[in-house]
Simulated assay, not measured.
Amino acid sequence: MNNSQLRAFHAVALHGGFSKAADKLGLTQPAISDQVKKLEEHFGVLLFHRHKRVVKLTSLGEQLFEITKHKYQLEDQARDLLSAHQALENGSLTIASDTPLYIFPLISRFKRLYPGISVTATFANAEEIIEGLNSFSYDLGIVADVTPEDKFHTIKLAEDPLVAFVSKKHELAHKDDVTLRELSRYPLVLREKRSRTRRLIEEEFKNAELSIRTGVEVQGREAAREAVAAEIGVGLVSKPEFGHDQRLIALPLRDCSAVMTESIVCLKDKMDRQIVQAFFTCNDLPLPDGEIA
């Protein structure tokens, strides 16, 4: 028994005759009759009562028809499922970011075009995101100052200066800007050691031959914001990430050359996914050379 024989039987049973089955399958009537006959002869059974132009299922044929209905219904469901994904009507995308600044506008544009795609946004530091990309936990990552690697497709989204920020009650709050040397006189609210912001600040202080006074080490931007508001020390963050907080004042760093670069990153091995390509395309982000969305 092969699939063409079973499909010919199913078509005859479904449409009530050999001619109609032939029309539906785009075959000749003799070809359909031959397939059904071979199926019957192979198992030594009778699946249809044939009388002139009337075709009727035998009891065994009715049982087999119930099975083939289920079989081809499952095939249709599988085809519909895959076609829906091909048309980007269903599916999922997981994005990890080290900041909420850039991720949501990108997701918003994508969801307007592909509302059926489920998108999960996760937040972590840059090192954790790269680890997640390598382990296939995330489809895309938005990370600060990522080092380009051949296995990644990396597109720069933004390049922003660092700023200091203080409580409105802090003695620096009246200034228009501040230098690294001035900051070295005050305790700093530092992010966790794996934070790219912290690494940049440490590099800047080292290059300026200045020491850092640590007020407190915290995990995450919100914790840093609250620590500064509580007057524990001076915080440092990229300019767009400072946002708006009536308790705090941002101070440009006059002599700091460091900038925070945010990039979207994807393993090249995942760039052939249609969903990933659609995300890049709808956000006007270039695909790797040779890729077609």
Rank of each mutant, 00 (worst) to 15 (best):
L47K: 09
M1A: 13
Q86C: 07
I232P: 04
M260E: 04
Q86K: 14
L188W: 00
D34W: 09
A31H: 08
V166Y: 03
Q77L: 15
F165L: 08
N3S: 13
I142H: 05
K24H: 09
I264A: 00
V189P: 02
F242H: 00
E41W: 07
E62Q: 14
E131R: 15
V55H: 02
V237I: 15
E127F: 05
S33F: 10
E127A: 15
Y138F: 08
D139A: 03
Q29P: 07
E62K: 11
E241D: 11
E41A: 13
L64N: 02
K239G: 06
Y72C: 01
F205N: 03
Q274L: 09
L46R: 15
Q277I: 02
L106N: 02
D245V: 07
N125I: 11
N207E: 12
K206W: 14
T120V: 14
E203K: 13
A293M: 11
E131H: 11
V265L: 05
E241A: 11
Y72M: 00
S83K: 13
Q35S: 13
L190K: 00
H49L: 08
G132L: 02
V234E: 10
E62F: 01
G61S: 02
I292T: 12
Q219R: 13
K168Y: 09
E204C: 02
R185P: 02
E262V: 10
P288W: 03
E291G: 06
H42P: 03
I142A: 02
Q29Y: 08
G17L: 02
G220P: 03
I232A: 08
L101T: 10
V234T: 03
H51I: 14
R109L: 09
V12I: 06
L101R: 06
Q73I: 05
P30A: 06
E66H: 06
K156G: 06
R181W: 04
L106V: 07
C282M: 11
L93Q: 00
E209A: 11
G243D: 06
G17H: 01
V163E: 02
P105Y: 04
A78Q: 13
E226N: 12
H174F: 09
L6E: 05
S238C: 13
G141N: 12
D80A: 13
A223L: 15
K37N: 15
Y138C: 00
V36N: 03
E131F: 15
